[in-house]
């Protein structure tokens, strides 16, 4: 039992390492594509960052970002890279959950679910304002 558990733990850690690596790689490549496109499109003007107005809805919601992607808009491509970057550690928790389910570790299945629920609450809990 002890030995078996060790192997799953190790395998799982390898898999988590892969998830993180491909996640950041994908995010980085999308950011480069969107960024270069953004620089080509940008004119002489400079955005006003000194006062905060908040990004418009098309950069802050998944539906807005997807709509922008279909139009080939550079800023939405960059935001897709941001979303993938944020999703990477969350995906890592999901993988850990599977690993604890495989190990039949009830205590840690519950602990991992609590962490996931907190993040889901953060996403959909209407904390925007």
């Amino acid at each position: 039992m002890g030995k078996n558990k060790k192997i799953t733990d190790y395998d799982m850690e390898q898999l988590i390492g892969q998830v993180l690596r491909y996640g950041v790689l994908t995010s980085g490549i999308i950011a480069i594509i969107g960024g270069v496109w953004y620089l080509i499109q940008s004119g002489a003007g400079f955005p006003n960052y000194t006062s905060f107005s908040g990004e418009p809805a098309r950069y802050t919601s998944l539906t807005g970002i997807i709509k922008g992607l279909t139009e080939g808009s550079a800023k939405e491509i960059i935001q897709l890279g941001v979303v993938i970057l944020i999703a990477t550690p969350i995906l890592r928790i999901v993988f850990s959950l599977f690993s604890f389910i495989l190990e039949k570790d009830r205590l840690y299945i519950v602990i991992t679910l609590i962490v996931l629920l907190i993040i889901l609450f953060s996403m959909f809990g209407g904390l925007k304002v």
Binding site: L20, S27, G28, A31, I32, G34, G35, Y38, P47, Y49, S53, G54, E55, P56, Y59, T60, S61, A74, K75, E76, I78, Q79, G81, V82, V83, L85, I86, A87, T88, P89, I90, R92, I93, V115, I118, I119, S122, M123, L127, K128, V129
Partner: peptide, 28 residues
């Protein structure tokens, strides 16, 4: 750190704190 930051990043993204023009050079 990544998980902790992701928990608040989902809120800040919706609040419009993450600007694409600043985000892409930062990520890369």
């Amino acid at each position: 750190v990544g998980v902790t930051a992701a928990a608040s990043a989902v809120v800040y993204l919706q609040r419009g704190y993450i600007d694409p023009g600043i985000a892409f050079p930062v990520i890369i």
